[in-house]
Design a binder for these strands. Sequence first.
DNA 1: AATTATAATGAAAGTGCTTTCATATATTCC
DNA 2: GGAATATATGAAAGCACTTTCATTATAATT
Lengths: 334, 334
Amino acid sequence: MPPNKPPTIYDVARHAGVSITTVSRMINTPDKVNGDTRVRILAAIDALGFVPKAEARARAMRGTGRIGVISPFFTAPSFVQRLRGIAEALSAKKFELVIYTVDSAERLKNLLSSVPLTGNLDGLIILSLPVDDADARRLVDHGLPTVLVEFPHPNLSSVEIDDVMGGRMAAQYLLKKGHRCIAFLGDTDLPEYSLHPVSQRLVGFRQGLQEAGIELPDAFVRLAPYSQEQTRKVAAELLSMPQPPTAIFVATDFQALSVLKAARQLKIQVPEQLAVVGFDDLDLAEYADLTTIHQHLDESGRLAVEILLAQIESPSRPTRHVKLPLTLIERQTA
Amino acid sequence: MPPNKPPTIYDVARHAGVSITTVSRMINTPDKVNGDTRVRILAAIDALGFVPKAEARARAMRGTGRIGVISPFFTAPSFVQRLRGIAEALSAKKFELVIYTVDSAERLKNLLSSVPLTGNLDGLIILSLPVDDADARRLVDHGLPTVLVEFPHPNLSSVEIDDVMGGRMAAQYLLKKGHRCIAFLGDTDLPEYSLHPVSQRLVGFRQGLQEAGIELPDAFVRLAPYSQEQTRKVAAELLSMPQPPTAIFVATDFQALSVLKAARQLKIQVPEQLAVVGFDDLDLAEYADLTTIHQHLDESGRLAVEILLAQIESPSRPTRHVKLPLTLIERQTA
DNA sequence: AATTATAATGAAAGTGCTTTCATATATTCC
DNA sequence: GGAATATATGAAAGCACTTTCATTATAATT
């Protein structure tokens, strides 16, 4: 017969002949209880069908132990690598990771109003998605500690990437290498968002060239949807021009790979005939020997967590805006 | 002023100049509170933006289910691609995705003893991690619908990959191409797990060769830690043998890339001097033009969700064991 | 006017769980 | 062999609320 009252931690403790402390520990940090005891408690738990009451739990811990991440769909490897940093930092602390994926600004808005801003989450990280004033205000009004990654907002803490500077670094590097006929290739996705990082990279890139008195003709600025095949096609077009560029700055590593592939197919030697510089330094950039602008992807996630946890701890702290440094990693492609 | 700390009933009480008792009553049985006081408390509640936590939780959880995914740390891209399928399928339905990452069998055990109880989950997907009998029993005893991906267990539903068959397919393909001197390269990670997919792939591979009367000498079976650099080194060793293999079956695409890199560095032509077949068909296999055994990574995640949701809907349904088909994708490397 | 019923309130004791701290026992080191 | 260190456990103090119960002020009844 099923017992009439839901069993409490006290019942389990009595049944197993230990203190409630030990039972609690068994549930939360099982590695801190002895093997024997562990088995006994587990048996008791199973026997009684004990399920800890979430509410009491949330009460006793300060907060829910849950932090949310809103991320664009995992299409781009760079999101994943950021996420990895977050997961890593979070699993070290004792937090659950709740992931909300989003495929449009529309859905982001819905989420931000429907995701219970209070009570459900202890903190929020928004990855590579733009937050407008209304959203930001709602977040601070609700007192939900939030950290933005990649799209900063004055009222919320953020981890930023200096995309403009990155573009410049690429320009300067290619100029130094003697290139004068340089193209840019970026992606078109997320067109609804303003201030897209890729645009910023283009801005910086153009600046860098201009400072050296070099033009970036419109025909040398190409955008392609973020997919292997389409990017490859656009790159092939670019490389088949009567006067093709001798160097291309590709705004994301993933697309840079497609450019390399296009070059390979056209039997264009890299880096002899064509220099390619990427952006991101994904794991696979190393495999491809891609010269690229390294941004600390994993680190950005880790840092976001760090800032967030600090903010959860003392909510009165002012917002922080951290800009991660960029480094150019010189490999074989430029 | 936006509240900095989530206000408690105490704050409201102080602000309204009453005891917490009265505030509590106000919330639960307002008719038992005097008109004046009622107004004052209401004002305080509004001013502070107070939301009783339990209520918030209840509100929050209504309608939104929560499904958990236990996954190995995001080291391997294949996990991520499976996860992507899960996230995709889940964001269509109205479910939250809670991710637990795990880096050892030890931690998995810990998680499994606590998550089912504590996590408030409606369902669980376990990605690429082995579950033993005790764990499985606990899960079914607790009535937590669970779907396993890649490591099946008789008592739980699963989405499986026929790794043995995959190994055979690789062997048969390479044999058909005329190779007789064939090596295997796999990874050593997760040594604590039995029945590792990579071992299975080796088993099938060996079978395939044996059926054609071909030996797989021990010197041609190499294991390397799952990292670019180390795999490259082991591959280089293999390729520098006095009698190097003319073909290598690499048990994961990610490592196959490193093999390709090693070949490039040793100026060994692929596929002319060396054929390489991978396993997984990651996104980047296409970029690298890698001939590989395609397993539906995204699809496996999607399918797991589908099975899980069906099971949540009608818990009485028997467990299902779905085996996804494998296909050999012929590209440039073999 | 004295008594009693009624309404409004707060002190304090739960509620089921976590966590800190102190204690007891076992292990390692020189 | 004793000190130093690590491991396993429980007592007790929270946590954010709810509830009981005793207290007071107020209204109603004789």
